[in-house]
């Protein structure tokens, strides 16, 4: 009927197949600066927390190979049946419509694959959700459209500050557009940081890709998450839940420093943010007035 089409069809299908191997490289981390997105990146960013490393290994070594093999296997089967069982190659269709053994096999093998995925998946999930004893606890409150960081008194803090995106006009050389903020949050390196999250207005979400952390900030609820940063540096995150017109304009920035540098910063910050005695509401009113 349409004999001329078949070879073309197969050739195009093969071209489509060439698109898939790109998946294989998706997991490889390109050369990049830790803490910020890599230009044209194909895979998960370089991770700097234990949970992040585990998540990256789970995706790159378990999930990605499995889904790539499954997708290529289905593609191979499709191309094979198109080649072997088209009307020219096989003019008389078979009448086979059942094969119990085959049906059991293609039910059980996926179950086994899922079990293989489930083991590392549940282990990582436990590590993410169960917060180990914390060295530093911070409270982060989402607002339309900025984050408020509160450092509690009993841990040497006793102040709070708002973290707002630097508008494009105020960017210094080297600042990242849409990611740089006025006040960076500073935390000590190699210590367990617990973040308590809530919101003053609508739902926001606190996410830092290089930590493997993403958690919602919901009004009326106190969520928690944690990270232990293994390297000093500046780490960028963004709001991961739609929160109104400036959803794209409320980044968060965390600078990890050594313990002594952290202590020094606490003293400095205490003076700088002295007006904010830890009561977020006062500061919100002030920042509203500024705008």
């Amino acid at each position: 009927m349409l004999t001329g089409i078949s070879p073309n069809f197969r050739r195009c299908a093969l071209a489509a197949a060439a698109f898939l191997p790109a998946l294989l490289f998706a997991g490889m981390a390109a050369a990049q600066v830790e803490g910020q997105p890599a230009p044209g990146g194909l895979g998960l960013p370089a991770m700097v927390t234990p949970v992040g490393h585990e998540a990256q290994a789970f995706y790159n070594l378990v999930l990605l190979p499995i889904i790539t093999v499954i997708a290529l296997f289905v593609l191979f089967l499709l191309i094979y049946v198109m080649w072997r069982f088209n009307e020219n190659a096989n003019p008389v269709p078979s009448k086979v419509t059942h094969n119990t053994a085959l049906e059991i096999v293609w039910t059980l093998i996926p179950v086994l694959i899922l079990v293989v995925i489930a083991i590392p998946s549940f282990r990582l999930l436990t590590h993410q959700v169960e917060v180990p004893p914390a060295d530093v606890t911070l409270k982060v409150t989402g607002n339309q459209w900025y984050w408020n960081w509160k450092y509690p008194e009993e841990q040497g803090g006793g102040f709070a500050f708002d973290q707002m995106m630097k508008p494009e006009a105020e960017l210094a050389p080297g600042d990242l557009r849409l990611l740089a903020v006025d006040n960076e949050a500073v935390v000590p390196v190699n210590e367990v940081i617990k973040v308590q999250l809530t919101s003053n207005d609508v739902i926001h979400a606190f996410g830092v890709p290089s930590f493997g952390v993403r958690q919602d900030a919901i009004p009326g609820r106190l969520n928690e998450t944690w990270f232990k940063i293994e390297k000093e540096g500046v780490y960028y995150g963004q709001c991961y839940f739609i929160c109104g017109k400036d959803h794209a304009y409320m980044p968060l920035v965390i600078r990890a420093v050594s313990r002594p540098a952290y202590e020094a910063w606490l003293q400095e910050a205490k003076k700088k943010f002295a007006a904010n005695d830890g009561d977020a509401k006062l500061r919100i009113a002030a920042s509203d007035a500024q705008r």
């Binding site: 998706a26 997991g27 910020q36 997105p37 890599a38 230009p39 044209g40 990146g41 194909l42 895979g43 998960l44 960013p45 995706y59 990242l176 557009r177 849409l178 990611l179 996410g207 890709p209 960028y236 963004q238 709001c239 991961y240 739609i242 959803h247 794209a248 304009y249």
Partner: peptide, 15 residues
């Protein structure tokens, strides 16, 4: 994978 949030009208230049 690189971390771009959805529902963003504007995104960091790396994306």
């Amino acid at each position: 994978l690189a971390g771009q949030p959805r529902r963003y009208i504007d995104y960091p230049d790396a994306y």
